[in-house]
């Protein structure tokens, strides 16, 4: 199963990015092969609709779960339509959160925020 995380760096010891739609990079991790791949997020600096485009990319990669500290309503709508599940991260380290997820230690993300829509906010 492939899982995706918004991350700040393209390395296995990266932190998780607080923004899903405007994350600079996406880490896609395969729980079977234990391999991770990093992608530039083409939507990071789009003028609008960043979450939609990021979610589209994640869905197109065949990802089944996203681990993120938060997610806006537009991204969530795309991910839901694609059958991608959302899990809420509780720490900063990508590797640590993947471990927790594998052990069944992450809850589903239900508090979808209405989006920042050009107003950033961290």
């Amino acid at each position: 199963m492939k899982i995706a995380l918004p991350v700040n760096n393209k390395s296995d010891d990266t932190d998780i990015c607080v923004s899903f739609g405007r994350t600079p990079y996406l880490m896609i991790y395969d729980t079977q092969t234990k391999q991770s791949h990093f992608f530039d997020n083409a939507a990071a600096d789009s003028p609008g609709g960043a979450g939609i485009k990021t979610a589209q990319f994640v869905a197109d990669q065949g990802v089944e779960a996203v681990l993120t500290p938060r997610c806006g309503e537009n991204s969530a709508q795309v991910l839901k339509a694609a059958g991608v599940k959302l899990y809420k991260t509780t720490g900063d380290s990508a590797a640590g959160e993947i471990e927790k997820f594998a052990a069944g230690g992450l809850a589903e993300l239900n508090d979808i925020h209405p989006g920042f829509h050009g107003h950033g906010g961290r």
Binding site: S46, G49, K53, Q56, N74, Q77, A81, A82
Partner: peptide, 23 residues
């Protein structure tokens, strides 16, 4: 259409196009 939209108002998931009217 999804690739063309520079405002990212369209997505293609679950075999169909979703339109984000606000965007």
């Amino acid at each position: 259409c999804v690739d063309f939209c520079r405002f990212n108002a369209l997505a293609f998931v679950g075999g169909k196009v979703s339109v984000f009217e606000d965007i």
